[in-house]
Amino acid sequence: MKTLKSIQVVIAAVVVSIFFMSNQKYSETIITKISDSDSTTFTIPANIQTIIDKSCVMCHTTESKNFKGKTKLNFDKMINGSYSINKIASKLRKIDKVVMIKKNMPTKKFLKNYPDKAISDTDRKTLSEWALNENKKIKATQE
């Protein structure tokens, strides 16, 4: 009985921590580029994380089944140091492009299948302003 209880506790702890970890995935992440002498930071604040988790994560992380989507943009690689600083800057520029100018992300088909994951106009603006601002920050460190 006692062992059963402790097993339950362990399982609960694991479930909670997995939940916590997955929720924390893109919060306040800092990247340091190892090959450069100067380190550049790149941040995804909680409000941006919420938008990405809702509308983009299904196609743009390492676990995504959307092969094309994740080769074009992989948020995991963006935060774990796999992308060079220039590549991060380029992808940030493109996020603004697809979210605000072309408005082709998330894809039409996705929005049809998952209407609850739609991105509001306010969120589009928030996401694009964040992307452009992070891009500017990176640029500033390179001058």
Partner: peptide
Amino acid sequence: DDDKMDLLYDMAEEVQD
């Protein structure tokens, strides 16, 4: 430089895929 960069990363991805 920004446009060159965007194109070069595109090229790398499209050729690789």
